[in-house]
């Protein structure tokens, strides 16, 4: 089975079970605070928000934050691809797109990615044509520093999401309540379930029946690329995910069409739902710091060159991943 289908099923089953629990009163919580009885794994942003707002250390919130940080360190933003209902809504939206639109979008993305790949390959050939073998590495046989492959991957430092995160926390500190929780798409999804259920079961008519789903749709449809550009949760996970070294996808250059055959492919970049370009990292909007371990690139690779090993194998001195320093975390505005 394709991992994409598996992901959809897992996210749908988890969402369905929690939504059922919500209306049937099975005390398992929602994704905002999953747990049983007095145990709860809290949403890390909610945990931060509530502690900032009440200016107190809340034991359950601190424990949740530590657990979440450990999980993100292990599997990055896996939550986004495997559990988040927002991704599920995107899937539904894709499903209802006309075949024409779907084809047009796919072609557009394909040509974009292909252009990047071709440009990089041309640069590579040009460098090889000059016979510059001086800095060439034995394996690829080309000059380093020309293509993205041999350059160190610099994880994006801070982007617009971190601005949203900072704004959310600032507003929470100023006004003393977890502001983002009011508009969080994960919370709104469950709120939609609850408000609809109450409308039918208890005849509870409220504007919320329209307003809650409307807010959700505005966020997901009108704020383009919510997950990549807006979501403060994704920003928070990025801050920890950039230190993750486990299950990160790696390309075997001996198998990859681009490095082994010099053919333009970049299928991995084309299928990535989270705007990462694994082959040419410099051209992706995000880097593997935001990898959701969704395995789309592993599935799509025509030569099965991509794997997700527990630990990335030691590089042969060519590609090294730079450890971000504290300085890197400082926002730098141009």
């Amino acid at each position: 089975m394709k991992t994409k289908n598996l992901r959809t099923i897992i996210a749908a089953v988890v969402f369905g079970a929690m939504a059922f629990g919500l209306v049937a009163g099975v005390s398992t919580g929602t994704l905002s605070g999953f747990g049983w009885d007095t145990i709860a794994a809290l949403c890390p942003l909610g945990a931060l928000g509530t502690m900032i707002a009440t200016k107190t250390m809340i034991p359950r919130a601190v424990i949740s934050l530590v657990i979440m940080a450990a999980l993100v360190l292990l599997v990055g933003r896996a939550f986004c691809a495997w559990l988040c209902p927002t991704t599920l809504i995107y899937r539904i939206r894709d499903y209802f797109r006309s075949p024409k639109k779907r084809k047009a979008l796919a072609e557009q993305k394909n040509s974009e990615i292909k252009a990047i790949s071709q440009q990089e390959l041309e640069g590579l050939h040009a460098a090889m044509g000059k016979g510059a073998g001086a800095k060439g590495d034995a394996e690829g046989g080309h000059a380093c520093g020309v293509c993205g492959k041999c350059q160190p991957v610099k994880h994006g430092k801070l982007d617009s999401r971190h601005g949203v995160l900072a704004g959310a926390l600032l507003s929470t500190a100023v006004f003393g309540f977890p502001v983002f929780c009011l508009v969080c798409p994960v919370g709104l999804t469950f709120a939609t379930v609850l408000v609809l259920w109450r409308a039918f079961s208890a005849g509870d008519a409220t504007i919320g029946i329209i307003l809650i789903p409307a807010m959700l749709i505005i966020e997901i449809v009108f704020l383009r690329k919510w997950c990549t550009r807006f979501c403060p949760l994704s920003a928070l996970m990025n801050l920890v995910g950039r230190f993750s070294r486990t299950f990160v996808p790696v390309i075997n250059d001996e198998k990859c069409l681009e490095t082994a055959k010099g053919a333009s492919c970049s299928k991995c970049a084309e299928v990535c739902e989270f705007d990462i370009n694994l082959r040419h990292p410099d051209f992706g909007e995000l880097t593997t710091a935001d990898c959701t371990r969704c395995r789309a690139c592993v599935d799509a690779c025509p030569t099965k060159a991509i794997t997700m090993p527990l630990f990335a194998p030691a590089k042969k001195g060519t590609v090294e991943v730079l450890e971000p320093t504290l300085e890197d975390l400082e926002p730098k505005l141009d």
Partner: peptide, 24 residues
Amino acid sequence: RGGISRRGLFIGVGSTVALLGLGS
């Protein structure tokens, strides 16, 4: 990389303003 694009600035500042409005 290593800087915030103009679009990023737009989104960041716009959202901060919106969230502060929501906070009020």
